[in-house]
Amino acid sequence: MKVRVLVSFKDSVLDPQGQTVKNALHTLGYKNISDVRQGKVFEVDITDMSDADIEKIIPEISNKVLANPIIEKFTWEILE
């Protein structure tokens, strides 16, 4: 089973890297882009585990390791 976890800054946290990317896009003429938030992608392979267990461990590892819950949030999806 392959799971994709997306980690990004909470809305309340300023993301200066995303701001810089947005400014660069504006410089290139993409004026309609009003905001960019930068994050991280983790593709996690899991073997021999039930769907119920996967639903349990993905939030667990995201909170413990992949994301820092003080500044970051995460979403996840099963890819295959």
Binding site: L14, P16, Q17, I70, I71
Partner: peptide, 16 residues
């Protein structure tokens, strides 16, 4: 901070 012995977190410097 990551260990949780102190509160808070670090972000990238404001001027990158």
């Amino acid at each position: 901070l990551e260990l949780g012995l102190l509160p808070g977190a670090m972000l990238r410097n404001k001027n990158l």
